[in-house]
């Protein structure tokens, strides 16, 4: 039992969230193995965003527990979960428009190293932070634009910065919320490559609409429908499951 636990990066047990009378998530028990490429799919309004907010601690769960790397983090703050190795990206860019990528990523690295609140040293003086930020941005194909204002970056570069910023937290578990959403075709390649090139020791939970990306990236898939876990299995299993097809293609597929 303990051995089984140790191989899990993330585990939820009976996780539920109600907003008034509306059950956005009900009784979700999900296991994500360490090093997995796990995808969470589901139609619009299935409760995927609520589920991420419960995992990251943005909203408190109504009931149930969240375990991160075999530790109960249900009552741990958002920042506490980041420090314990959970990072996320956003479906709609949540970046610092006025800062440059080097500042943005440096900020996250400094924070991780406990140097983010220093008020007497200058930004840029901590060479360990700057070097790491530069290396990360170069790896994420942002080397050439790292001194631009974020607001002026092309959309695809901003999506890459979303992922780079999460990686700057050195996560053990990375929650990717539709990383390729809205990226124009000519920049899409860069984003998909970066997702593909994420280090193997980082566990990834991918929330995605794009089935092509899910089937090529994930080794395990969970389907969320109306706030509940509807199906779970390997790629082959899910892609041929008639019930999942029905959910995605509409009522007609039942016939």
């Amino acid at each position: 039992m303990t051995l089984a636990h140790q191989t899990l990066a993330l585990q939820t047990l009976g996780l539920s969230k109600s907003f008034g009378g509306f059950r956005a998530n009900s009784d979700i028990s999900l296991c994500v193995a360490r090093g997995a490429r796990h995808a969470l799919i589901g139609p619009n309004g299935a409760g995927k965003t609520t589920f991420i907010n419960l995992l990251t601690g943005v909203v408190p769960a109504t009931s149930g527990t969240v375990r991160l790397l075999d530790e109960d983090v249900t009552r741990v703050s958002q920042q506490g979960r980041v420090k314990r190795g959970m990072a996320r990206t956003y479906q709609i860019n949540q970046l610092f428009a006025d800062l440059t990528p080097i500042e943005t990523v440096g900020l996250a690295i400094a924070e991780r190293e406990g140097a983010g609140a220093r008020w007497w040293s200058r930004v840029g003086q901590n060479s360990a932070v700057v070097d790491e930020a530069e290396a990360l941005l170069t790896r994420m194909k942002l080397g050439e634009v790292m001194m631009w204002r974020t607001a002026t970056l092309p959309y695809g570069k901003q999506r890459l910065l979303e992922i780079a910023l999460a990686m700057a937290c050195k996560p053990k578990l990375l929650l990717l919320d539709e990383p390729a959403a809205g990226v124009p075709e000519d920049e899409r390649h860069d984003v998909l490559d970066s997702v593909e090139a994420l280090p193997q020791d980082v566990t990834v939970l991918l929330i995605e609409h794009d089935m092509e990306l899910v089937f090529s990236f994930a080794d395990r898939i969970s389907v969320l429908v109306q706030g509940q876990l509807f199906a779970e299995g390997g790629v082959e299993e899910i892609s041929t499951d008639p019930r999942v097809k029905a959910v995605y293609l509409g009522e007609d597929a039942h016939v």
């Binding site: 980041v82 956003y90 400094a110 140097a115």
Partner: peptide, 21 residues
């Protein structure tokens, strides 16, 4: 300072600042 930069980040995007710890 890094502290000053983190304030700007908070002003710019409170949600994301919390997400990076």
């Amino acid at each position: 300072s890094p502290f000053g930069l983190s304030l700007k980040a908070l002003k710019d995007n409170h949600l994301r600042a919390a997400t990076i710890g």
